[in-house]
Amino acid sequence: MTTPDEVLDCLGQRCPLPVIALARRLPELPVGAVIRVLADDPAAAVDIPAWCRMRNQEFLGAAPAPGPAYDVRRVR
């Protein structure tokens, strides 16, 4: 299990807001850093991995409980 370098709390936000927050924050972290996005909008489960694919960042998967969360590593 990855320990995130940062947690981004997007609970209660509707898509595309969690994806926008991720897109704003990730480039400010060093390459190799892992960010955990907490997002309970069901679209986040689809859109965060899709964003990673479009932006060539690494989607590490849904993070373990509690709550819906997604880990992303900055790779470029």
């Binding site: 509707r14 898509c15 595309p16 994806v19 069901p42 679209a43 689809v46 859109d47 899709a50």
Partner: peptide
Amino acid sequence: SCTSSTLRPSHVLEAMGVLSH
């Protein structure tokens, strides 16, 4: 999702793994 009454993204886009917003 924001256009559906259930506020869920399309199950089709979800099944394909493509951007839904």
